[in-house]
Write a protein that binds this DNA or RNA. Sequence first.
DNA 1: GTGAAAGCGCTAACAG
DNA 2: CTGTTAGCGCTTTCAC
Lengths: 334, 334
Amino acid sequence: MTIYDISEKAGVSIATVSRVLNGSSNVSEKTKKKVLDVIRQYEYTPNAFARGLGLNTMKTIGIMCADSSDLYLAKAISYIEQLLRANDYGSILCCTGYELETKAASMNLLITKKVDGIILVGSNFIYEREADNQYVTDAAAQVPVMLLNAALDVPNVYSVVSDDFTSMYEATLQMIRAGVKDIVYFYNSTSYSGKKKLAGYRAAMEEKKLPGGSLMQFYSGSHEDIPAMVEQLKKLHRRGVSFHGVIASDDTLALAALKYARESGLQVPRDLSVLGYNNSMLAMCCDPELTSIDNKLETLCQHLTTTLMGVLGGNEMPKKTIFSGEIIKRGTTR
Amino acid sequence: MTIYDISEKAGVSIATVSRVLNGSSNVSEKTKKKVLDVIRQYEYTPNAFARGLGLNTMKTIGIMCADSSDLYLAKAISYIEQLLRANDYGSILCCTGYELETKAASMNLLITKKVDGIILVGSNFIYEREADNQYVTDAAAQVPVMLLNAALDVPNVYSVVSDDFTSMYEATLQMIRAGVKDIVYFYNSTSYSGKKKLAGYRAAMEEKKLPGGSLMQFYSGSHEDIPAMVEQLKKLHRRGVSFHGVIASDDTLALAALKYARESGLQVPRDLSVLGYNNSMLAMCCDPELTSIDNKLETLCQHLTTTLMGVLGGNEMPKKTIFSGEIIKRGTTR
DNA sequence: GTGAAAGCGCTAACAG
DNA sequence: CTGTTAGCGCTTTCAC
């Protein structure tokens, strides 16, 4: 069933059918109804490929994320996909893994598929070295690129971020003020937002003239391997480093700290204070429940989508938007 | 840059360019190289829409899931997307929510977008009432439909499931044999696999002549609201129902049971045995670690993808495949 | 081996 | 208001 069939059965030209299909105004009510009736009768839907060829768009956005099974990224994808669909855009998903090479390859793939825009979900897409971000700049030469939780100042790239520096700074300060000594910073990412968080922690520690050094613990294992995270804290303890607080760069690491405490017979928060990040569902599944930083993911996603729609609509849009986070106090901190 | 430009610069016809692009055999090495050189020089990539129009496919699969931020579904999506991409297929994601109406709408949307196949991730897409599955049957009239963790016996629908009945049956039996009295079944889904699991529990209980009744606890709240789940167990206890075991239909519910135990001063597994389902990352994040049933998600996804590729390749493929689960013993059961 | 030409199904400019 | 027609960029017969 093509537009020709419909036009024939309705006794009009294909142009008219096309007009009613696209809601063009210049069609009389009568012919419109006639055409619509035929369309409904035969359950006709226009061929998306032909349409795409003519309009040079199929109204789809490419969504890239390192790993869609990561709790936080998955949530973001879920929000974004729904928002896009509400705006009549489809989503092509690409789980890229964490290597630069595969990220760049996925990017090219999406451009090949002629998406209207690309959303990079998660801060791990932006690297420290300028050259490593070239793939983003290149892509932005073709289609608008949106960054969630990362920023890059090049043309046609739009960034929506949470103010991770300030959140972490405030949280660290708060823990210091509560009298917690020797606060470990436990992190697993040196991405854009990873660096911001670390910087927030360091700024607070330095402000209070507290030593950093071995208190900054970088975990490089699998994002899901909690026992390995626990082991790293145990090893730290065995090395003679004493600590009474753990500020983690995400909830999973914080959960590991909690588990470390339990296995070591430490009371939380009496002997060990623990702070998470993301305020994910994980924060509620432990006991005591996890104090965590809410970085307003839904708000970020909403803003990101709105901005993208604006850009696609040819409007001038803000290149970078920053939202504040919020510390959600629960049972793992004093 | 179009195929015409390339053909011109290479001094051949567009047909020849098309041939080398599609790896057709009937091209001399010499012209092939000549064309390839020009293509590389200008970084030409064929227009996907035009290609789609000509071939009537853009090599994309629609992936539907109720909620891509669900831990289990997210994992499945991640596996599937990567497997599809390895097979040169792209993925259009659709988070449908849990209502029949929105599921059917998403299905139509995907068909409109002319995907080559549709994968329904999660058992919640198949309903008890025959009529409620009509949307699947309808879709299958257009493109092959793959079911992950659900089954439906209609043409062009292929099912890949874990043997949830047996897994749950064995696990329940095992707990009974361990001497645990009054085992609650804590579940939140009456979907295809939800029913299988429940049936497994009931079969084991009946076999041992144990009462069911109020021990079967259906939780109908949000999938992420652990406090609400805990509250339901507390309420059950307050109602005077005593229980010493909880078999949960997923790890989140099991975690809630664990939390209930802690808040009630119960020792696990001494006073309360807990069994989860899915063997997700959640199983490792608590203390003691959760005994859980591994339903071999990765294997299921692999098989599902292979089957889909086979179907798309025009081969005869098994309509339904069943894999066995495995009980992963950890610290929450004796 | 290679080229010419007929679609694929739709949109949009143009003419009436 | 409606119809005619020229593309959009590619694949694929069918000749040569």
